[in-house]
Amino acid sequence: LTHGSGGRAMAQLIDELFLKAFDNPLLRQLNDQAAFDVPAGRMVMATDSHVVTPLFFPGGDIGSLAVHGTVNDVAMSGARPLYLAAGFILEEGFPLGDLKRIVESMAAAAEEAGVAIVTGDTKVVEQGKGDGVFINTTGFGVVPPGIDISGNRARPGDRILVNGTLGDHGVAIMSQRENLSFGTGIESDSVALHGLVAAMVETVPNLHCLRDPTRGGLAATLNELAQQSAVGMRIEESSLPLREGVRGACEFLGLDPLYVANEGKLVAICAAEDAEPLLEAMREHPLGREAAIIGEVQEDPNHFVQMQTAFGGMRMVDWISGEQLPRIC
């Protein structure tokens, strides 16, 4: 990949690559924007910049991740995602073959998710000023009438659910990046969740909260929701779905799976009486087979998230600001 004025031919090459891979009627119009009709309901928009090392990992790559990440952010409002816009920042010297792989994977992910990438942009930066490739995606979707999902709707007594095992993505990425033998076999869970969300909303239209526990893991997400809703939460360690390989790898690595990133998981909060039907609906969907009720919302002026440990004690699930800097004195 080259950069600068001499790169006209290159720019064209890239455009063609994108056009071919993402091909759809809106993109084909070659405008600087995409114009489309909006169905009835509320419009939802979300944007996410994707930066990941390594670019290719078991279970996905930055391309599929860029689709899933934003589709999921849109879907967490209960919306059906419709369109994506994509912005690429490429580093000079990035192998064209790798780019092709990423773009094709992105196209496949979009197709599978049923969303069209309708507009986009590409910039090439000098060598050393990027990390291979960064992808920003912005998604649009529409929430059906009657759905009101928001982070501030958790109420004491509500139940907390997740759709499956925790920490797969973070551990897969780390194992791949650091070339750790004990992490092999763990795949990222990266996937678009709106199909599952549609099934959930159909069964429980009065779903209170949905959020994807990506960076910072379940711990960060629950703390965010607790703050937003001004409630406390209490989860049970024994009910957290965890893959054996992830559990083991986390033990070696000294990581707490509660803080490890996911890319195909969601946290749902609903009224107690809706919990069982919701769980059933989730388990019937391929992306919710290992769904579980992991805890409940409670009144708490401190907005603590706490966990009943396997030994029966209560432990704080702290809101950690950044890296897990050692704390044991």
Binding site: E251, F252, L253, G254, L255, Q324, L325, P326, R327, I328
Partner: peptide
Amino acid sequence: PLPGGDRAAR
């Protein structure tokens, strides 16, 4: 080095 961060302290 603390292999595994706080885990190494236990």
